[in-house]
């Protein structure tokens, strides 16, 4: 019975937690969807591995409100993103732009892939060469002797 009550309380608690999260959302679902999509491409600078949509840091909430306010004022999504980049730099973008300072970031994985493929190719070819080396007569007679027991 006690467990049941505890479970009921926990469930209730969850319901309240969800209710608490839904603060300051406008009634307009189209606007909200836009805010959400922008919040997914902007980085939270406090908890740097999260985007604004996932983060509950104060700054993330402020920035989300800022995004919402700007969209409500009729600014385009690009204007909102430019506004954030102007203030927080490219780092605020979850997908960093391709620039001279970021080519290694974008190209690095392909470089590694290329290196790995090259290494694998080299290894396989060398193994094939070793495996296909024909036996000379001496080895052949030695093998035959072994096979006959």
């Amino acid at each position: 019975m006690r467990k049941l009550i505890a479970a009921a309380l926990l469930t209730l608690g969850c319901a309240f937690a969800v209710a608490g999260e839904a603060q300051r959302v406008s009634e307009d679902p189209v606007l909200e969807a836009k805010v959400q999509s922008l919040a997914e491409v902007l980085r939270c600078l406090v908890c740097q591995n999260q985007n604004l949509a996932d983060s509950h840091a104060d700054l993330a909430i402020d920035l989300k409100n800022q995004v919402r306010d700007m969209l409500r004022q009729g600014r385009s999504e690009k204007e909102v993103i430019d506004y954030m980049v102007e203030r927080y730099g490219d780092f605020v973008l979850y997908r960093p732009p391709l620039k001279t300072t970021t080519w290694l970031l974008w190209g690095g994985p392909f470089l590694l892939l290329g290196g790995g493929m090259g290494g694998l190719f080299y290894f396989l070819r060398r193994r094939k060469e070793l495996a296909e080396a024909p036996l000379d007569d001496q080895q052949r007679t030695a093998a035959a002797r072994l096979l006959q027991g």
Partner: peptide, 12 residues
């Protein structure tokens, strides 16, 4: 409300 903070790119 931290609006000027946002304008100055304050995050910490």
């Amino acid at each position: 409300d931290g609006k000027v903070g946002i304008d100055y790119g304050v995050y910490g």
